[in-house]
Simulated assay, not measured.
Amino acid sequence: MKLQHYLGGLEGLGPVNTETRVFVEPWETRIFGIHTAMMALSTHLPLPQTPSAFHTIWTWADLRKGAESLNPFDYFKYRYYEKWLGGISSYFIQHGYITEEELDALTEEYYADPSKSLPSSGDAAIDDRVVQYLVEGDSPARDVPVAAKFSVGDVVRIANVPSVEHTRLPGFLRNRTGVVETVYPGAYTYLCDTGPDGIGEAMTVYCVRFDPNELWPGNAEPNFSLYADLYARYVAPADVSLSVKAA
């Protein structure tokens, strides 16, 4: 498991960045806009067709996979939107929208002449689809018959699933026990199939309460609890070992 999946309770990672601005540099607003447009134009959404050349699936999960696939040293070196830029750039290369050589050449052009005008763009149908997406969203909730295996008050143990690219399970919860606080009604899918990590299909989601002393023995403050919303894949009876290996 990569270090960026296992941050809770770790010490000695260096100074904490207290930057409060949402966008530090002007270009970061453009990265946010590109990501939003890609989500709105993703082919998995039942929205009106547009003349856009974007013809693949892009979700929050794809963005997260791009960031989390970085080498840990790079992950902690770059700021938030720098990770976004790397993930989006890699995605466009991997899906054939542009080659690495073409991207490098364009980058050098704009380094050499920062005042060089950007390509022209704009289409009313694309703009309308982006607005519709922002209004309607893409809910992960699904009205499907999935039976919950646990009830409020049950003691459960958290899995140690293999995380290849992306996971929704914090490292510090793995192999720890907690108590089911809430069983959310219905079932919830994830935005993509996470492979050996095991989420994607519709399943129950639980809110599990943890005693900090269970998570960080001898190094936790008293009189509080930690809560985590967890997919059913990550939850099992307390007397079951859940160290899961990739096939």
Rank of each mutant, 00 (worst) to 15 (best):
E102W: 06
T20L: 07
G8F: 01
E101D: 15
G8E: 01
G122D: 06
E25F: 10
S69Y: 07
F150K: 04
L41S: 11
P222R: 13
R168C: 04
G200I: 00
T43Q: 12
S163K: 14
F224M: 05
W216H: 11
F210T: 01
Y184S: 06
Y227L: 06
K77A: 12
A236C: 09
I158D: 07
D123G: 15
H55E: 09
G9Q: 00
S69W: 06
D123C: 15
I158C: 05
S139G: 08
E11Y: 03
Y81P: 08
E82G: 11
L45P: 10
A247K: 15
N17Y: 00
W58D: 05
N175M: 09
R176W: 03
R233S: 02
G218W: 00
Q132D: 08
S115N: 14
E201M: 03
G186Y: 02
A67S: 13
D127V: 11
V155M: 09
G178Q: 01
K83C: 04
V155E: 14
T18F: 04
H44I: 06
L215C: 06
D127P: 04
E11P: 00
D113H: 13
D74K: 13
Y190W: 10
Y80H: 14
Y91A: 08
E181N: 05
H35Y: 12
D128C: 11
G171I: 04
D104Q: 14
V235H: 02
I93G: 12
L10A: 01
W27M: 01
M1L: 01
F23P: 00
F73L: 13
V155D: 05
E136M: 14
V131T: 14
R157D: 03
A246K: 15
Y111M: 14
W58P: 08
